[in-house]
Amino acid sequence: MKTISVLVPTYNEEENVCPLSKAIIGQMESLKEYDYELIFIDNDSHDSTREKIRELCSENTKIKAIFNAKNFGQFNSPYYGILQANGDCVIAMCADFQDPVELIPQYVKAWEEGYKIVLGQKISSKESKMVYRFRQAYYRFMKKHSEIDFLEQVTGSGLYDREFIEVMRKIDDSEPFLRGVVAEMGYNIKLIPYEQPKRRAGKSSNNIFKYYDGAVQSITAYTKIGVRAAVVAGSIFTTLSVISIIATVAYKLLNWDSFSISEYWIQLAILLGTSLQILFIGIVGEYVLDINKHVRKRPLVVESERINFNQN
């Protein structure tokens, strides 16, 4: 009998873990030809999430838990959790019900048809329209400028076959970006369209800084546009500077009375040039920071506790 692992990363999801567990188990028990395990990986929640997960684990040994020693970020924790699962495939889902559990049978059906990766793709959303449009713009930007085939409106929620998980395991990266890994290394992929519902309860831990961090991580890892833009803009302004120097020297030597440059425009040009230099130093700095993160070779997470992993 094949085993399906369902992975749910959590962070301050005390209102969602119990109903989500019930909903997922309901779906898995309807797939009678499969065994299952449900794994919660908690990223150092500060509410009662861990207590509720412990209760669930005590009631059902097929429910397992990994408690991280601290918060290791929104990307490392689920990636690490996938690698710890024992199933023939792993289904990754968010804890807030925005990844509908009703997709599980569709994921499994596509997997049995031979697909190695089956991902949910949002075709619409009941979340904030502004957030959804920003995400659309981000995915289109990545698809256009990345050297790999980035998938639009795919967050990483879906099914991963054991064969691809072994590919993930071989990636020597202390901060892997799952969506990028799928786009770069993934194969035999099927997308399942769905409408993203609103969060069932609680408040999302995502904010503008986390969105920025995720976007920059993917841009620096999978595009060259930042560095190339700096090179192009630098070349243009260097050329204009050389022309300005030549014109100024010619004016001084030939004393062209008809030639004058407003002091206002000179100051504006200096301000613009300096601002662009600072901007592009910051962009290059983001690439350097990304390199620094990837070469440190630190573990994805550090665990503080495991529950039920020694159970059959």
Rank of each mutant, 00 (worst) to 15 (best):
K2W: 09
K2N: 08
L7C: 10
E14Y: 06
I25R: 04
M28E: 05
M28V: 09
S30Q: 05
E33M: 09
L38A: 07
F40D: 01
I41S: 06
D44S: 05
E51C: 12
L56Y: 05
C57Y: 06
C57Q: 10
E59P: 00
N60W: 01
T61F: 01
K70W: 00
Q74E: 07
S77Q: 11
Y79H: 11
A85F: 02
I91F: 02
M93S: 06
C94D: 08
L103T: 03
E112H: 10
Y115P: 00
K116W: 02
V118H: 11
E127S: 14
E127P: 00
K129E: 01
M130V: 13
Q136Y: 03
H145V: 00
S146D: 07
F150L: 12
L151S: 09
Q153G: 02
S157Y: 12
D161N: 09
I171C: 03
P176I: 08
I189G: 06
Q196F: 07
P197W: 04
R200A: 08
S204T: 14
Y212S: 09
A221S: 13
G226R: 08
R228E: 06
A229C: 13
V231A: 15
I236Y: 10
T238M: 08
T239Q: 01
V242E: 12
I246G: 03
A250M: 13
A250Q: 11
S258Y: 15
F259L: 13
I261F: 00
W265D: 14
L272F: 05
G273W: 15
I278C: 07
F280V: 00
G282C: 03
I283M: 03
N292Q: 11
K297M: 07
N308F: 00
F309Q: 05
N310R: 14
